[in-house]
Simulated assay, not measured.
Amino acid sequence: MPQHKSCKKRLRQAEKANAMNRAARAEIRASLKVIRTATTKEAALAEMPKLFSKLDKAASSKRAGFNANRAANYKAKVAKVINGFA
């Protein structure tokens, strides 16, 4: 357990950031699952803007360990999945 006041504050901040990052990653994973398990292209296209928005938010605020390149890679993979529908 931290003894210094600043260390206690840093621990609180880290716990809060950890919870936010975990939530952001969970939302992104859930949205990806919806797209990957979609049976029609329309269903996947309906979820795509939501996922892209979540990825952009995560990348812009450096949340969940996402940077711009990682978000772009996710977007490319999603586009590939959606274009694979007949």
Score class of each variant (00 low, 15 high):
58 A>F: 02
48 M>W: 12
13 Q>S: 04
82 I>F: 05
61 S>I: 06
4 H>C: 06
19 A>V: 08
66 F>E: 04
19 A>G: 07
11 L>P: 00
48 M>P: 00
23 A>Y: 12
23 A>K: 12
42 E>H: 01
56 D>C: 05
56 D>R: 06
36 R>Y: 15
33 K>N: 11
37 T>R: 00
78 V>H: 09
41 K>T: 05
42 E>G: 11
71 A>D: 01
79 A>K: 14
10 R>M: 07
34 V>D: 05
1 M>T: 01
79 A>F: 00
43 A>F: 06
83 N>L: 10
62 K>T: 13
4 H>L: 14
31 S>V: 02
81 V>K: 14
83 N>I: 01
3 Q>E: 15
71 A>N: 03
52 F>D: 02
66 F>G: 13
34 V>R: 05
54 K>E: 14
70 R>S: 09
45 L>N: 03
39 T>R: 01
61 S>T: 12
21 N>P: 07
36 R>P: 04
8 K>W: 03
84 G>K: 05
12 R>C: 06
37 T>K: 00
27 E>A: 15
45 L>G: 01
14 A>K: 13
61 S>H: 08
85 F>M: 01
24 A>Y: 09
3 Q>S: 12
66 F>M: 14
24 A>L: 11
26 A>M: 10
36 R>S: 09
64 A>F: 08
64 A>K: 03
11 L>V: 07
14 A>V: 07
7 C>H: 10
20 M>N: 08
6 S>Y: 08
51 L>S: 05
17 A>C: 00
10 R>N: 13
78 V>P: 02
33 K>Y: 07
59 A>S: 15
31 S>C: 02
82 I>P: 01
42 E>C: 03
75 K>F: 00
26 A>V: 06
79 A>P: 01
77 K>I: 09
53 S>H: 11
48 M>K: 15
41 K>W: 03
45 L>D: 13
28 I>L: 06
55 L>P: 13
12 R>F: 12
54 K>Q: 15
65 G>K: 08
6 S>V: 05
8 K>A: 02
55 L>N: 04
5 K>T: 10
74 Y>L: 14
12 R>S: 09
32 L>T: 09
74 Y>H: 11
20 M>L: 08
69 N>I: 06
41 K>I: 02
1 M>P: 07
66 F>L: 07
32 L>C: 13
61 S>K: 14
45 L>Q: 08
85 F>A: 00
83 N>C: 06
26 A>F: 10
67 N>W: 09
13 Q>V: 10
56 D>H: 02
4 H>M: 10
8 K>C: 00
79 A>V: 09
5 K>G: 08
